[in-house]
């Protein structure tokens, strides 16, 4: 997985802790988007034909194709359902988040 990773961040305590000027480091993500999700896409690896359609159409780029099976970065998936809708072999199911969190 070569996706950008989340960085740790401590809230500035005083005004001098804030960065000076208008520049900030790039690739600096301090919070995840997982909480946005109502439904979670789950890939059925048996049905997946590795056409990479979901990888292409994901607006958040959370599908990783570097290994021999596709993996979803659930930290940043917003559960929009584009991948499941576009999947021709219907290998992606949208499952209610509540089923994972009890």
């Amino acid at each position: 997985m070569n996706k950008p990773k989340m960085k740790s961040f401590t809230e500035p305590k005083t005004v001098t802790d804030y960065p000076l000027g208008a520049t900030c480091p790039s690739d600096h993500i301090t919070s995840i988007n997982a909480g946005w999700r109502t439904y979670r896409p789950v890939i059925d690896q048996e049905k997946c034909v590795l056409c990479m359609r979901c990888f292409l159409v994901c607006p958040d780029g959370v599908i990783d194709k570097s290994s021999d099976r596709l993996e979803i970065d659930y930290d940043f998936c917003k559960g929009c359902g584009v991948c499941a809708y576009e999947c021709k072999p219907k290998a992606i199911k949208m499952v209610k988040e509540a089923e994972f969190n009890g």
Binding site: M52, C58, D60, G61, K78, C80
Partner: peptide
């Protein structure tokens, strides 16, 4: 989709779910 790089240069943004514009930028 097969030969497109796996590296993401636009990642972890806060666009609404299913945003077409963020896909275009990505």
């Amino acid at each position: 989709a097969k030969n497109l790089t796996n590296d993401e240069l636009f990642y972890g943004h806060k666009a609404c779910g299913g945003c077409g514009e963020s896909l275009a930028v990505r």
